[in-house]
Design a protein around this nucleic acid. Structure first.
Lengths: 157, 157
DNA sequence: TATTGTTATACTCTATAACTATA
DNA sequence: TATAGTTATAGAGTATAACAATA
């Protein structure tokens, strides 16, 4: 059972690891928890986080192009193809030819896509409400503001 | 140039997307920024975040086993093999037979491993200090506390 | 029976590079 | 020349399932 080792680790637990003071480590651990809960909440054939994000932005900005969407999501154009394929396959949006520029395909949400989005955003909010139920409103507001501050700093550079 | 679309997106930018209010989305975006900066800061042949974490815990808890380490890092045992292989390949630790339980191989940091760890943790702290330089001490403390609160909640379940 | 370390394997997410059709 | 969408491909990082050795 390697009791010695387990014992010693427990003894040292009082002084925390260097990792516990790092933002990167804590962000990752927190993110994994939220993401796993997201997946469980949306179930077997629910949307993945990235597909949900793409649907959200398409519903918000109908006729958005894939390049614009990629830029907003912070990923490469090429990575969006599979995401849009999935949303098109689920009947959530159409790729529509734009007469003024035939290179572009505007993404247009269908009624079905809008309906699925409303259902999904409700489920996502319920999952976050539950997972963050032990935070006060003030703590939640602060946390969001600080996360956005990191994003601003990162996007400056 | 699909000016219409770009124009409309810009117009709507005033009211923010639903995603901006979600913890999952903001955590992911923030985490990606910190992680990319970590990679840049540590350079071409620097340690990856996960290898750095494993080294940190091995230095802190010499003689830890791989199973314990996996548990602490929140990943599967099998995933640790490649990480420990890399650290062994870099001469940062040894797998040592434990006489009392011959299934176990204790991870023992070498002097070289401890030296690399000290160099790396200094570089990591410098990277985080720089990246978070526009936050006050109070904001940083609050952010860490709130991230830990998410972790506690997640690990309860 | 259960656990440790390990291998094989597959899946998700992402990036890079090159292609095509347009502009 | 440059851009939009696409394909092919590769690389992290992770999980699951099974195995041998050992408890």
């Amino acid at each position: 059972m390697a009791k010695q080792t387990i014992q010693r680790v427990a003894d040292f637990d009082l002084e925390s690891s260097d990792l516990e003071e790092l933002f990167g480590y804590n962000l990752k651990r927190a993110y994994i928890i939220v993401q796993n809960d997201f997946r469980e909440a949306l179930g077997q054939d629910g949307l993945s986080a990235r597909v949900f994000s793409a649907l959200s932005l398409t519903v918000k900005y109908p006729n958005i192009t894939q390049s614009e969407l990629a830029r907003m999501m912070g990923i490469e154009r090429s990575g969006l193809v599979a995401i849009v394929d999935e949303l098109e396959g689920r009947g959530c949006l159409s790729r529509v030819q734009v007469p003024t520029d035939r290179r572009v395909q505007a993404l247009v949400p269908t009624d079905n896509g809008r309906r699925l989005y409303q259902e999904t955003i409700a489920a996502v909010r319920a999952h976050e409400d539950r997972l963050f139920s032990d935070m006060t409103e003030s703590e939640k507001t602060t946390l969001l503001a600080l996360l956005k501050k990191i994003r601003q700093k990162g996007e400056q550079e």
